[in-house]
Amino acid sequence: MTLTTRHHILFDLDGTLVDTRAAVVECYTRVFRNKLDSAFPPKDFPVADLFAMRPAEVFAVVAPDRVEELHAAYRDTYPQCTALVKVFAGIRDMILELVDAGRQVSVVTNKGLERTLIDLGVAGIPPETFTTIVTAEDTVERKPHPAPILLGLSRANGKVEDAAYVGDGPQDILAARAAGMPAIAVTYGFYDRTILETHAPDVIVDSPAALAAALGVDAASAKGAAE
């Protein structure tokens, strides 16, 4: 499989381009403390699962009668936590090199548009860098359903055979496979290699530098840590 010539590269956001783990956990912690008078994470609720779920889905599990209230509190609180958002080292350079090479880069995330734009701003990656950005508001379905990825590809006027999807979680691998394109899994995000290998991605990489190499761009400064 040749990924270096694929024209359309679609990316997950959290755990792939930006490290939002600390910001998300802090936001939930504040909402749980201030609104539910309880600790976060709740018992028997793996933190890793949060990054595959929308906030409303999380609140539907822990307080199904207060979803709207808690989701609103989450939206209001998240901007206060953005100092904790980091961009993975080398990611900005990789994205810019892909664009400079004439390739189309897009974001497809389960996250809402407002928080997506906040994260990209903190990361120093202008939204207009991307051909399109697909967020939670754009499809009823979320990954692992292929609809968000296919919408992003359609907006970019791309074809499945000329595209690949990059993500850090099982839901990303499953969505890419269902969409009919190669899945590139990164282990520097929220899921470890063992979990990702269980879902058999087409390619698995351990750092932004390795990701850049897999995509055929020279991002020698990419080292894997968050900036």
Rank of each mutant, 00 (worst) to 15 (best):
Q171A: 15
V105M: 08
I133Y: 01
Q80G: 07
L113D: 08
G167Y: 00
T16I: 05
D65N: 08
L98A: 11
G180T: 07
V217P: 02
A89M: 09
G169E: 09
R115P: 06
K35C: 14
A178Q: 13
F88A: 10
P148D: 01
V140Y: 09
V25P: 01
D93R: 14
T77Y: 06
L196G: 07
V62P: 01
Y28F: 15
A163L: 10
T4C: 03
A89V: 09
G224C: 07
V105Q: 08
D218Y: 11
A136L: 15
A209N: 12
V186Q: 05
I184F: 13
V105S: 02
P42K: 06
H199C: 10
A72F: 05
V24I: 15
D65Y: 05
A23H: 00
V18S: 02
R6V: 03
E97W: 03
A179E: 04
H8F: 15
E57W: 08
E137F: 13
D100I: 07
P46Y: 08
T77C: 12
A23T: 00
F59E: 02
L211H: 03
A39M: 11
F32R: 11
V186K: 04
A185I: 01
I149R: 01
L211E: 07
A60M: 05
G121M: 02
D44Q: 13
D192N: 14
D19P: 04
T187W: 06
A123W: 01
A178N: 09
K111P: 14
A56Y: 08
Y188W: 07
V24F: 03
H7D: 13
A222N: 10
R177T: 15
I204T: 05
I95D: 00
A222M: 04
V186E: 05
G90H: 03
R33M: 13
K35D: 12
K223R: 14
A222G: 13
